[in-house]
Amino acid sequence: MNSKPTALKALDIISIILLAVATYLALVYAPTEKVMGDVQRVFYFHVATAWVGLLGFVAAGVSGVAYLKTQDLKWDLVEQAAVEISLIFFFLAIVLGSIWARPIWNTWWTWDPRLTSASIVELIYLAYFMLRQGIDDPDKRARFGAVYTLVGAISVPITFLSIRMFRTIHPVVIGSKSAAADGGFNMTGDMKLAFFFALFAFTIIFIDLFWNRIRLGQLQQRIEQLKLKVME
């Protein structure tokens, strides 16, 4: 429990290497896109960070349900870790997306379904942390946190859907294309490699961060217990 597990140490190193390779692939290896130019290179990390944000979002919802079912505080740690990671990565995705959108859409921001949903998720996460801060009893904090993540996890897809009922201009690169989308393109083989490698690298980074954060939570719990023991 005290020293860091070897597997985790190895995963840390692998994550760093993968990140370096993904950066190389995105910035150097992938060909420059014909219409958009170099700014398109943002796309590789933009989608990858949003993907990690989504993974964290789903993990938070699932662990919320798991907590309510088992009442085991372990799930509360998992949920908190997932929310924190998702918060940071959605933020990164929004920032990267804005950097791309400025020259391509000629604006930093539009109220498109994805952008709006991502920002609402961020607001829900902030509300989640404020809620937790306002409660002292750990069991109650965990219960309320789990209920709120569950409610959020159900409301956000409905939000996404409801905004999608308006027209969207966000390009869909993978899968079907919307006629109104602006800034879409077809990936060449090299681009696909850089793209899927970035997705893979960030998935591993997600697992690494998740593991580290859960371990940190466990250590925090341990410290609290020790403090209580000392005070007795």
């Binding site: 607001l123 902030l126 509300a127 409301s155 859907l161 409801s162 905004i163």
Partner: peptide
């Protein structure tokens, strides 16, 4: 706390 918790959740209703 209430508006902060509630408003992001009721966005679909509002829209």
């Amino acid at each position: 706390m209430l508006p902060i918790l509630l408003f992001p959740i009721i966005v679909p209703v509002l829209i």
